[in-house]
Amino acid sequence: MSNNDDIFDNLEKIKNNPPFAVPENYFDTFHDRLMKKIKNESDSKQTGIKRFLKPLTGIAASIILATALYFAFFMVHKNIATAENDTILLNEFDKVIEDPVAMQLNEYDLTCYITGCNQTITDFENDDTDYSDLTIEDIDNLILF
């Protein structure tokens, strides 16, 4: 049996030659392959950020679009309603001015017509009530209410 201490001495001769084969040109091409991988990782990282932001951009765009559509619809609807109201008022006015009786009405009658007071001048003319003892206050109340 050989001395065990000699084993490592014998191995000294071969220890600097690792017993493993390396593919041909491995070390010559390693640097280029590594740089390519680093570049790819960097590109995919940027793509990853874009991929993360893309749905957020879509959501933001959807919110802006929905808000814009809501306001656009609201404004159009409001304008239509205003226009409709104006048309109704104009029609009412046309009715008044085209009426031969209405044409004889004075300012007070028109005010009564618009504000809805029930008494007209003719009511007073046909009224037999004696108003001679009315006070100023009574007259005010009669006119205003």
Binding site: N10, L11, I14, P19, F20, A21, V22
Partner: peptide, 13 residues
């Protein structure tokens, strides 16, 4: 490992 190309004593070690 197809890359091992040592002798018997290297294999043992």
């Amino acid at each position: 490992d197809s890359g091992f190309n040592g002798n018997e004593i290297q294999l043992k070690l």
